[in-house]
Amino acid sequence: MNPTLNAIRAGITRGKIESRQMLTNSEDLGSTLVFTTIFIVVMVLMRGSTVPGTDFSLGTMTVPSVLGMSLVFSGVVGIAAGLSVDREDGTLLRAKAIPNGMRGYLVGRVVSSSAYAVGGLVLTLVPCLFLFDGLATGGLTSWLTLAWVLAVGLLATMPLGAIIGALMPSPRSMGLVMLPFSILTAVSGIFYPITALPEWVQGFSQIFPIYWLGLGMRSALLPDSMAAVEIGESWRHLETLGVLGIWAVIGYALAPVVLRRMARRESGSAVAARREKALQQVR
């Protein structure tokens, strides 16, 4: 059997098992439900406000933006955190010891993270369809746009998450990831139209995937008339595809290099040293 195909099959199986564990683990489900509930409550409280210059509900406009933000969170933070934890507890070292084990591990991580991202999107979107008026989900075009934005978004964010996870010294360094993520969320038009921000902030936000995923989700789930409050009064599908595509190309070019360097440094002594350091911090 082809070793690469064997590793991919093993990775897919691993990803299915990890996905099943997430769906049956009360702690994972509980934390996901808590964050989803918080976001939905915030958006419900925003229903009484309107988008400036329109009579459209700000809460409804925020729904697809939050879906885009959640997709970035799953692709970047989810992969980075999982990779960092697996490196510290020796999972990566065990994978490294198996022929093509790292390839299988990464395939499994991609499968489970994709399942988590899609599950989180469905968990948020379904109740919002009943709670918010004005979501344009009645046509095939909306669902096709949602599908390609979701696919391209995962391709753009997961390699970035793998790079960050490989560079993080430990899972306790997640704050270094969450801080810039929070800042980008605040300036990327997730909870308020980005056109209300200074132009230099708009330009800065357009460098990163979170703005484009929010825009892509809005283009899928909002009426075409709401493009009037976006930059250039357009959904800019080609630009969305182009920027996210550039991030995907950069990520897939750099991620294998960074991951190979990380794998070469993995050893039993390195895992033991990280565990000892973690125990000292707990004490």
Rank of each mutant, 00 (worst) to 15 (best):
F204W: 10
A136R: 08
C128F: 08
A220K: 09
P171E: 12
I183D: 02
L155V: 11
S173D: 14
A166K: 08
L179F: 12
V126W: 00
A162Q: 11
M168L: 15
C128H: 06
I164M: 07
Y116W: 11
L135S: 11
Y105C: 12
C128L: 06
L222N: 03
I163H: 01
Q202N: 13
L221M: 12
M217E: 09
M217V: 08
I207G: 09
M168E: 05
G108H: 05
V107N: 10
T185R: 02
T145G: 14
M217L: 12
T141E: 14
M102T: 14
L154S: 09
G108I: 04
L184W: 01
L144D: 09
N100P: 00
G139T: 11
L125S: 11
I183A: 12
R103K: 12
Y192H: 14
L197P: 08
V201G: 12
L123M: 15
L160K: 02
F204P: 06
R103E: 10
T124D: 11
F191K: 04
P171D: 13
F130N: 04
L125Q: 10
A156W: 03
V118I: 15
A166V: 10
G138K: 04
P169Q: 11
Q202D: 10
S173I: 06
F130I: 04
Q202F: 08
F204C: 05
F191V: 10
Y211Q: 12
F181P: 10
L150E: 02
L213R: 00
R218L: 02
A220P: 13
G119Q: 03
P209A: 07
C128I: 06
L146C: 13
N100D: 13
Y192T: 15
V201C: 11
I207P: 02
R109I: 13
V126F: 03
